[in-house]
Design a protein around this nucleic acid. Structure first.
Lengths: 140, 140
DNA sequence: TAAAAAGATTACGTTTACGTTAACGTTATA
DNA sequence: TATAACGTTAACGTAAACGTAATCTTTTTA
């Protein structure tokens, strides 16, 4: 019988190994280690020096991968993630707010561009469907 | 007086040099040549072998750059662009349609993910504004 | 408890998307 | 018409984001 590796409270898994996350998100363990190398993740370590990922780490990884799919670089993603931990003086917070607003504008822009691209593809689709109708019509 | 290099009909420029496009889109000429190398662009050539870009080439370049900003790879962008020129048998057109629909779903997905990211950033923003209010309130 | 599986670190390799430089041909303009 | 400005190809270089392999340590499991 397969034994659960770590503590599980009422059916909710609370920690994960590197390969569990790798499998879940369909990425390599190397990729996860690389993200840690860049400071995007900071999992705790077990007594034997193995990485232990919490649910929070997992959520972060999810965010990282989302950022990637959306065309942000890992350093941009790092900056965005760091917004979660800003603490300290008012000046720092103001700067972070400015940055966040800039990113929000970028996101709006990307949404608009995606919608334009979508329109383009829909137009092509119509043309292709029409072309197909002609072909199939004359050659049933 | 600066003379226009090529024919201009009623104020509408119809052809462009590589550096004109590079300047307009704030990219390098190398980048444009690279896109041609990959088959994403196919400008005509002048008698002296210099590239001549039409408005159509320019529109393509715009599409390429949009794709890039949205996180598509150059080979994905190439596939999408090639949808414009599909001709021939019904089978080929059907395949292209399938591909187009896949891409459309991807685009929808990206839009959703951008909305989620946007929500995340808005939430962080609220937290930061609150934190700032506390700080400034106690230290006017 | 010993073998197998999983994890860690290190380091070199690879792909994508260009940057940079050289060496030479073409065009524009003073 | 000379010469600056621009364009061409070729080739080597580079940063980002991992892939891969080797070697060793830790965990799991038969």
């Amino acid at each position: 019988m397969k034994r659960k590796r770590r503590e599980v409270k009422n059916g909710e898994k609370n920690t994960f190994t590197i390969s569990e996350l790798a499998k879940e998100f369909e990425i390599s363990t190397r990729t996860i280690r690389y993200y840690e190398e860049l400071g995007l993740l900071s999992p705790q370590r077990s007594a034997g020096n193995q990485r232990i990922f919490t649910r929070k780490d997992r959520a972060r990884l999810k965010l990282i991968l989302r950022g990637k799919r959306l065309g942000f670089s890992l350093s941009e993603i790092k900056e965005m993630i760091e917004m979660y931990d800003v603490a300290g003086e008012s000046e720092q917070i103001k700067l972070t707010l400015k940055y966040g607003e800039k990113k929000l504008r970028e996101i709006e822009e990307k949404i608009k561009e995606l919608e334009m691209l979508k329109e383009d593809l829909l137009a092509i689709k119509e043309i292709l469907i029409e072309r197909l109708r002609e072909l199939e019509g004359s050659n049933p």
